[in-house]
Each structure stands twice: as structure tokens, then as C-alpha cells.
Design a protein around this nucleic acid. Structure first.
Length: 559
DNA sequence: AAACTCGCCAACCGCATAAGC
DNA sequence: GGCTTATGCGGTTGGCGAGTT
């Protein structure tokens, strides 16, 4: 704004017009502030002392007043930055410890470039430090042709993503139960949070969840990488929503990165197929899936027009997670009629007045999640095969809007879940296995920066073959009813979740695929949840950590 | 010894948004 | 509601020192 603009202006005052109270030579080429040029460039110890003194007297904040009260010829912004990054107490100086480095990697795998949020998890460290560290690390590893994340971190993020994807699905499917449950004062099932807590062992930085509430979950859900725990507790609600939306967009950033990662493969199409993506991509997919860009505007992975899957980008690697920014041209070109702001507003609307009687979510859903979609598709394939054998009656699990949660739970639990609660996941290729097939895992890798060798990476291409084959076989078998795996809703609309058109969207028929989809651990969680007749509060479809997706899609970086 | 490259770091810049008027 | 100000965040730049050629 004007403030920022004034800072960057080069409204040069000649140096002889400036009288520094410090009598120091300095770069006063900065902006004029009330006729006084403000110094730029490195801070001197004298300036630091002045600033420290000022903060001691007046406290933090009101940074623009620093110059007035202290005679420091620095803009408020600069003062704030100096204080935050160098002068404030309890700052930890020096190199990052190994633990800190590991934490940063884990946090970044989950959050993306949310430096400020990451800094909140590293006491004494600043976002700038973390950012610098990360950028340096990226460069280093890029140069070495190493994966951005160690396999174990990628795997963790992958697992978290899948878990939350599943939770999210459950939530969407049960949203129709929402009002009934609320009226009966059902709470969030403890089991869910117990399970989430237990999962903390996976990512040790996940804070305690004991204080989590339905509302806080709702508030934090979309962006919360680890169950909503990354948001500052004092963060303004709308601010959170902004963050959430941004983080949702991080998902698309992850997708973008994903396609950068494909550049590493000799054969892009094969690489994509290894991840379960339908290659060759149709650049004009909008015409074939108009709803993708219209109704499902929440997914702006493609809508932002930042990448064309059919044209692997040759631009420089940019491991950023783009914010939710659209250009009119992009939107128009894609036939997208919405703008980002309606999305944000819709999220807000959703929070303020949760929708009733619909499973449609105002929150973006992670379409085109690539790897995860591959899993869904795979699960679907297996489930279809199973259905052919068992030919279960879907009516047994039909839920009517009037059903209470207990009956729903019984349906799920007794009719379906028993089949899939087996310790061994019915997913022949679970997220883990699929991932491992595509990830250059080095069993001996322990150090975070000791990444797989180039040889190992090459091996990954070979290992991905089975997935590739599954995919192709599936295409052949289902050529007549081919579903675009880039659009999981297509799966949900088919035999994954059979929306009973006669009874409305809220009436879902959960078939075997549901259990298949959920896998074992979440399946148990889901089972217990259902058995407890407590279907969780209707937070948004994307309440789970889509922002963790970048981890999956940033497994590799370009050399 | 000079030139060059690279990594690190501090600071700047642009942008978004909340708050106050 | 519109404008201005303050604040925060993430991306980028540029200076500097160390290492290499």
C-alpha cells in the first residue's frame, strides 16, 4: 500500500540533506518520510541500541513511531524486521542443530513455504532464518540432484495426507448427518482425536491435541497440517481463513512441483503413470470435465493455469507454493467463472453456517491429487473385483437422512467394515507401498542430507513398473467406463459412493470401496467412530491437511 | 595474487489484510 | 463504505567472506 510503496520509492534526498543523529555514513537512498530520508542497508550497533532502548520504553509495535521518538532514520518496517530477526530476546543464534534441521524438513514437507508458521515451531528461530536455510538447502540438493525430502519424511507426509484424505471423505459423506447430530448434541468422537494424538509419534512436532475442539478443528482444519495445530492461537479468524485458502493453494503448488519432479524422469508419461496419473494429459481437459473448473472451483490446481500437464514445464525450478492468485485471463481461458474471493467467502460462510442436507462441500477438495488418486483408483479396482465376488446388497448400508447415527454406525460397522478392518490393508498397493515403489528409498539413509544416490533414483523408475502395469490393465478393463483419475469425485459419484438420486445427496450408500479406500488404520478409526454413534462435526471437506500434499509432490527436485 | 564461484545472511520489496478513522 | 495506516508474510536481492581455480 502506500506505506510499503513509500518505502520502496526512490525519492532520493541528497545525502547532505540528511543528518543522521548517529553521525554515521549510511545509505539514505531510501524513501522519504515526512521530508526525512530513511536509511537503508545494514544496521549499525548504534542503531540497534536505539531500537532496543525504544522497545524497552515503549514496547513492541507502533514501529513507525520509532523514528519520531528515537530519531532513528529507519522506517517502521525495517525496525520491526530488525527487532524480530536480530534484537528481540530469546533469539537463538548460530547454526541450526540437527534436530532443528529435521524439524524444518518435516514442517516444510507438511506446510510448504509457511516460514512464519514454521518459525513458531522453532523457538528462537526466525522465519527469515528458516527461509534462508531452506533456500540454501534447496540449492544444495538441487545441485546434487538429490530429492528435496528424505524418503522417510516424504513417506510420513504421504501417510498423513492419505489419512486426512480419508477422514475428509468420511466427513463429507456424513455431512448429511450433521444437523441431526448437532441437535442431539453429539460430539466429535474422542476416538478420532485419540487416534490423531497417537499419530503424533509419526511427526513429533505435532503439538498436543488435548485442547482441540470441534470449532477449533473447524477453524483450523483446512490449513492445519497436523490437525489444525499450526495456526497461531491468536491468529485472527479471517486471517486463518486466508491462510487456509492459501494453504489449499499450496496443494496446487505441490501439483506444480509434482510436474517439475516429472522432469526428472526420462519419460514423463511413464513417470506420471507411475504415480497413477493419466498420461498423456489432455491439455483441454476442461472441455471434458467442465465441472472440474466450474462447480469444483475449489480445486485450482489446474485452474490457475500455471502448468500444463501435457507440456512439462521447462521453466526454472521454483519450489514455491503459489498463493491463491488467479489472473482473469487464466480463469477465462479455463472457463472458470469463479474468483478466489468467493472461495474464501464460501469457506467463511460454511464455517458460520454449516450447510445442511448436502454433501457438497464449499471447501476445495483435492482433486488431481495424482498419487492419492492413483491409490483411490487402485482401491476401486480391487474393490470392484471384490464386489463381483461378494455381490453385496448396497441397500444394507443405505443411509437415509432420517437415520440416526447409530443405525449408520451399524450399517458401516456390521455390514461393511468387518470386511476391511483386517490388519492387512486390502489395498494391494497402499500409499506406503506405492510410494516406496516410486521413491528412491535408501535403506541405509539416515542423515537428512544423505539422499539416495543417482543409481537409486534410477532404480525408482524400474520399481514403478508394477504400478504402471496396474494402471494400464485397469484402463483396459474399464475402458467403457473410464474415470478420470485426476478427478476423484468421479469415483465418488460412481460405485464408490452411490448417491441415491431418489433420496438426495445426503443419502449415501457406502459400499465396499469405502472400506477399501480407508485402509486398515483409518478403517479401524472409522469403525470405532461409527460404533460410537458419533459422527464428527461437519467441518469442511478439505478440513484435513491438503497443505501436507506438497510433501508428496515434492519428493524430488530437479537436479 | 587475482578472478571467480558459492554459500550465507541481512535487508529490502511487494503484496495482502486488519484496524482505525 | 472508502481511505489511510500499521503490520505481517513470503519472495527476492545484494553484500560479504570463504573456498577454488
Amino acid at each position: 500500500m502506500s506505506h510499503a510503496g513509500s518505502e520502496s520509492e526512490d525519492g532520493m534526498l541528497s545525502n547532505n540533506q540528511i543528518e543522521s543523529p548517529l553521525g554515521e555514513e549510511g545509505n539514505y537512498g531510501g524513501s522519504a518520510n515526512g521530508g526525512v530520508a530513511l536509511k537503508k542497508g545494514p544496521w549499525t550497533s548504534a542503531e540497534d541500541a536505539i531500537l532496543i532502548e525504544y522497545v524497552k520504553k515503549h514496547g513492541e509495535g507502533n514501529w513507525n513511531a520509532v523514528q519520531k521518538h528515537s530519531g532513528l532514520f529507519r522506517c517502521g518496517k525495517s525496525c520491526r524486521l530488525r527487532w524480530a530477526n536480530h534484537l528481540r530476546p530469546n533469539l537463538k543464534k548460530g547454526a541450526f542443530t540437527q534436530e532443528e534441521e529435521q524439524l524444518i524438513i518435516q514442517l516444510h514437507a507438511t506446510m510448504g513455504n509457511k516460514w512464519a508458521q514454521m518459525a513458531a515451531h522453532l523457538p528462537g528461530r526466525t522465519d527469515n532464518e528458516i527461509k534462508n536455510y531452506w533456500n540454501t538447502r534447496i540449492k544444495r540438493r538441487q545441485r546434487a540432484g538429490l530429492p528435496l525430502y528424505p524418503p522417510e519424511v516424504s513417506l510420513q507426509a504421504m501417510q498423513e495426507s492419505q489419512r486426512c484424505l480419508n477422514i475428509d471423505r468420511i466427513e463429507s459423506e456424513h455431512k448429511s448427518q450433521h444437523d441431526t447430530l448437532l441437535s442431539k448434541n453429539y460430539g466429535i468422537p474422542n476416538i478420532m482425536f485419540d487416534n490423531l494424538k497417537a499419530n503424533q509419534s509419526i511427526l513429533p512436532y505435532v503439538p498436543e491435541l488435548r485442547d482441540i475442539t470441534a470449532s477449533s478443528m473447524l477453524m483450523k482444519g483446512v490449513s492445519s497440517s497436523q490437525y489444525g495445530s499450526f495456526m497461531s492461537p491468536i491468529m485472527h479468524r479471517q486471517k486463518r481463513l486466508r491462510e487456509e485458502t492459501t494453504l489449499l493453494s499450496s496443494f496446487s503448488g505441490g501439483m506444480k512441483n509434482e510436474f517439475h519432479l516429472f522432469d526428472q524422469f526420462q519419460d514423463v508419461n511413464k513417470a506420471a503413470q507411475s504415480f497413477g496419473l493419466p498420461f498423456p494429459f489432455d491439455p483441454d481437459s476442461t472441455t471434458k470435465n467442465p465441472e472440474f473448473f466450474g462447480e469444483n472451483q475449489g480445486s485450482h490446481t489446474l485452474a490457475n493455469g500455471n502448468f500444463s500437464a501435457s507440456k512439462p514445464t521447462a521453466e526454472a525450478v521454483k519450489l514455491e507454493l503459489p498463493s491463491l492468485q488467479y489472473s482473469e485471463t487464466d480463469l477465462g481461458g479455463r472457463g472458470l467463472s469463479c474468483s478466489p474471493s468467493p472461495l474464501i467467502e464460501s469457506v467463511d460462510t460454511f464455517i458460520q453456517s454449516p450447510p445442511t442436507g448436502t454433501v457438497e462441500s464449499v471447501c476445495p477438495s483435492p482433486r488431481n491429487s495424482g498419487l492419492l488418486d492413483a491409490l483411490l483408483h487402485e482401491a476401486k479396482t480391487l474393490s470392484s473385483a471384490k464386489n463381483q465376488l461378494s455381490d453385496k446388497s448396497s441397500n444394507s448400508s443405505t443411509i437415509t437422512p432420517g437415520d440416526n447415527a447409530d443405525s449408520f454406525a451399524l450399517n458401516i460397522c456390521e455390514k461393511e467394515w468387518e470386511d476391511y478392518g483386517h490388519p492387512i490393508s486390502p489395498l494391494g498397493h497402499t500409499a506406503t507401498s506405492l510410494f516406496s515403489e516410486c521413491t528412491p528409498i535408501s535403506a541405509n539413509e539416515s542423515s537428512l542430507d544423505e539422499s539416495p544416490s543417482a543409481e537409486t533414483f534410477t532404480e525408482a523408475n524400474v520399481k514403478s513398473e508394477p504400478v504402471d502395469q496396474i494402471w494400464i490393465a485397469d484402463r483396459e478393463n474399464e475402458s467403457s467406463t473410464w474415470l478420470d483419475i485426476t478427478f476423484p469425485e468421479a469415483l465418488l459419484d460412481s460405485d464408490w459412493l452411490e448417491h441415491d438420486s431418489a433420496c438426495g445427496k445426503g443419502q449415501v450408500i457406502v459400499n465396499n470401496a469405502m472400506g477399501t479406500l480407508l485402509g486398515d488404520d483409518l478403517g479401524n478409526e472409522y469403525k470405532q467412530m461409527a460404533a460410537g454413534a458419533s459422527v464428527s462435526h461437519g467441518w469442511g471437506r478439505s478440513s484435513c491437511s491438503w497443505d501436507s500434499m506438497p510433501a508428496v509432490y515434492q519428493m524430488y527436485e530437479l537436479p
